[in-house]
């Protein structure tokens, strides 16, 4: 009887670790401040390459004490291959919309325009073509955010 009690108690206590540890599980590749919105920080949380398509995920965190309206037209985002002096805009679907999200409205091919409350965060994702010249690193540029530079492309 005591054996079952001990096992159950241990299971309950260990299970409390799972959600807590997941807070720290999200990897951040690089963090940049905003050049336009006070207190907004952007974490590049993921960059993957599949079939010559780069997918990036970026999380915006509002560290300020007030609400911030973040507006990023997807047509202003690009990745830059400085080595070969080339830049690449997000991929567009057959309807002329950028393959990115979330999308607040479709003006200009789609925009990320959301309010982020103090202490809260919101993420976006964008799909870019992989640079043709196989550079080792790229710069990721979003309007209103200082560029993410020297981001390694691990294939």
């Amino acid at each position: 009887m005591m054996h079952y009690f001990k096992t159950g108690l241990l299971f309950v206590m260990l299970s409390t670790f799972v959600p807590v540890v997941s807070v720290f599980a999200g990897e951040v590749i690089q963090t940049q401040e905003s050049s336009s919105w006070d207190g907004i920080e952007a974490d590049l949380t993921s960059l993957t390459i599949k079939n010559n398509i780069i997918t990036v995920k970026i999380k915006f965190r509002n560290t300020a004490s007030k609400n911030q309206g973040i507006k990023i037209p997807y047509d202003s985002c690009f990745i830059m291959d400085a080595t070969n002096q080339k830049k690449y805009y997000p991929l567009k679907d057959s309807d002329g919309l950028y393959i990115a999200g979330p999308v607040s409205d479709t003006q200009g091919g789609g925009r990320f325009w959301f309010d982020i409350h103090a202490g809260q965060s919101k993420s976006l994702w964008i799909k870019f073509p992989e640079p043709t010249d196989n550079p080792e690193t790229v710069t990721i540029s979003l309007e209103g955010i200082f560029p993410f530079e020297d981001i390694a492309l691990t294939r």
């Binding site: 291959d81 002096q85 992989e130 043709t132």
Partner: peptide, 8 residues
């Protein structure tokens, strides 16, 4: 083949 590359 150019994947939409533009000169910087």
């Amino acid at each position: 083949s150019g994947r939409g590359a533009l000169p910087i």
